[in-house]
Nucleic acid binder design. Structure first.
Length: 559
RNA sequence: UGGGGAAUGGUGUAACGGUAGCACAACAGACUCUGACUCUGUUUGUCUUGGUUCGAAUCCAGGUUCCCCAGCCA
């Protein structure tokens, strides 16, 4: 195998190309990446893209990936998020080994380096108010004005900065700023703030500090301390890169990492901004951060989405610099693909319709054998009770069926999966004219599902015995938003009123009540489901992860 | 002429001067004890105008459109 043939492989992207080139040129021997969340919220599927990128690169190139919490703003951060983020990354299937770090671990060193900047005349304490700083920063098209405090002496700056650290001043009284260029076209270079006074309790450093470094000042230096080689972030940080490099050039850092940017994930029918997700939870549009309709990792998990499906999804969508919106259908495909391969099959009747087999003896019962996975004989079989009274799906009966409806209707014959052919004789209605029961006959010769005379049926229905099935609540989830591109500014207007449908008296196979049954299952002809944590010993609850593809429904919809 | 980025089928992405490929979606068909899965086939694309070249998605020049930046958020 020559180097040339190795050069281009499927699944590559511009960042992996850079990494490969750096390895080839000897620029780096070991690749070190990092995933650097701020612990101020729950992770979502957009983070999964970044996680898979950073951990994936480390794994593919035999390097390592750090999990580093960018905990530089104690007013927004909580231990709850530090814990949930670690749980989510692990659940996704990634491992940082011993490489768990916190930017707050570096507060002391960052502070010393800041004094160094002051000593070299590269930073100053500014007494202006926040409004004054904003006003003198200029605009996108006009340069800013120098602060009247910009030329303080080194001694005065040092004294003031030390007193800031000592907690002598109230929040907002002063900031430490880098002395760069107030007329720079790049606004990030117009004397950015390095430290602000924040009398706040930090989840890790407690009340030790009353000043905290800004993202710009902390991030690159943290990368350098950890020996990160490729600091990968999203596009909006592109114009922070000159500042990232400025600090690394001016400070006595142990290494000089390089920052690379890629486009963040956008999905149709989905909003991923923290502001919107927070309001969805706070305003009660969803039940919490782990509501199965949420695009959070916790929500996806509760929904029943397997981590392998998420990994496959982010692998398929690739990594590039162009802003894009991925069709949520791509995610759904990956979920179905994984679940079809792995989920055992069971039968469940979501909206039961009673069926009485008139020619089946009263009080008789027999066991029918059903296979657990059509493509995996090793998954084995199970027994299902069959008797005179059964349930089938309401949708599987139509009194006046249209042309292409193959299921039950008066006079039609269908197969009950694994069991018998049955023929509908009569539909019994209630006073309101609704069909409440089907009177049918079965053909005893068709046991097992095939007719000795070779006659065929056009439909096979799932079913459950009336007596030996369990009642369950089934939560059928659909898109949270009705619009393919919901408006983040007025998201409430784009909410899908049918995002959740609760079916209180569905029926499932008794085996699903077993306490150890927590894996995803396919309810045949319906979709993929997973038991919800709300389940109790006598109150089963299932979430629908996703329905099966339904070409019949599509045809009906087309008319 | 504020600075920084990006434009390839409906969608995402590849092609690094040499046959525009893959996947999702859509459509048609085959198969089927899940109207699922699987299989087969079809449709659809290089933002634009010039230039360089035997040859341009790729290089050059101009234009157009879209995204990001004026937090003591990250």
């Amino acid at each position: 195998m020559t180097t040339e043939t190795v050069a281009r492989e499927a699944g590559r992207d511009f960042i992996r190309d850079i990494v490969q080139a750096d390895l080839d040129s000897g620029q780096h021997k070991t690749i070190v990446t990092r995933f650097p969340p701020e612990p101020n919220g729950y992770l979502h599927i957009g983070h999964a893209k970044s996680i898979a990128l950073n951990f994936g690169i480390a794994e593919e190139f035999s390097g390592r990936c750090h999990l580093r919490f960018d905990d530089t703003n104690p007013t927004r951060e909580e231990q709850e998020y530090i814990d949930s983020i670690q749980a989510d990354v692990r659940w996704l299937g990634f491992d940082w080994g011993n490489n768990l770090f916190f930017a707050s671990d570096y507060f002391e060193r960052l502070y010393e380096w800041a004094e160094g900047l002051i000593l070299n005349g590269l930073a100053y304490v500014d007494d202006q108010s926040q409004d004054e700083i904003r006003a003198s920063r200029g605009t996108l098209t006009e340069p800013g004005q120098n602060s009247p405090f910009r030329d303080r002496s080194v001694e005065e700056n040092l004294d003031l900065f030390r007193r800031m650290k000592a907690g002598e001043f109230p929040n907002g009284a002063r900031v430490l700023r880098a002395k760069i260029d107030m007329s720079a076209g790049n606004i990030n270079l117009r004397d950015p703030v390095l430290y602000r006074i924040l009398h706040a309790h930090h989840p890790r450093t407690g009340d030790t500090w009353s000043i905290y470094p800004s993202y710009d000042y902390a991030h690159g230096q943290s990368d350098a301390i950890e020996g990160i080689t490729h600091s990968i972030c999203t596009l909006e940080f592109e114009d922070h890169r000159p500042l990232y490099d400025w600090f690394l050039d001016k400070l006595p850092v142990p290494s000089h990492p390089h920052q690379y940017e890629f486009a963040r994930l956008n999905l149709t029918y989905t909003l991923l901004s923290k502001r919107v997700l927070t309001r969805l939870v706070q305003d009660g549009h969803v039940s919490g951060w782990d509501d199965p309709r949420m695009p959070t990792i916790a929500g996806l998990k509760r929904r029943g989405v397997p981590p392998a499906a998420i990994r496959e999804f982010v692998r398929r969508i690739g990594v590039a610099k162009a802003n894009s919106v991925v069709d949520v259908g791509m995610l759904e495909f990956c979920i179905r693909e994984e679940l079809n391969r792995t989920a055992p099959r069971r039968m469940a009747v979501l909206r039961p319709l009673k069926v009485v087999i008139e020619n089946y003896p009263e009080r008789q019962s027999e066991e029918i054998e059903a296979i657990n996975h059509p493509d995996d004989p090793a998954a084995g079989t199970r027994k299902i009770a069959f008797g005179r009274e059964l349930f089938v799906e309401q949708d599987d009966f139509m009194e006046n069926p249209p042309k292409k409806f193959f299921r039950l209707s008066p006079g039609s014959e269908v197969r009950l999966r694994y069991a018998y052919f049955i023929k509908c004789r009569e539909a019994v209605k209630n006073a309101a004219g609704e069909v409440v029961e089907l009177r049918c006959t079965y053909d005893p010769a068709t046991r097992g599902g095939n007719a000795p005379d070779g006659r065929k049926v056009k439909a096979t229905l799932h079913w459950l015995p009336a007596a030996q099935s369990k009642v369950a609540e089934i939560r059928v989830y659909n898109q949270l938003f009705a619009s393919p591109s919901p408006d983040a500014g007025n998201f409430a207007a784009d909410l899908n009123p049918q995002s959740l449908e609760v079916l209180k008296d569905a029926r499932v196979e008794p085996s699903l009540a077993e306490s150890n049954f927590d894996t995803a299952v396919q309810f045949e002809r319906q979709g993929y489901f997973v038991r919800d944590p709300d389940s109790t010993a006598d109150g089963l609850v299932f979430n629908r992860t996703i329905g099966l593809r339904d070409s019949f429904a599509k045809e009906v919809a087309k008319g």
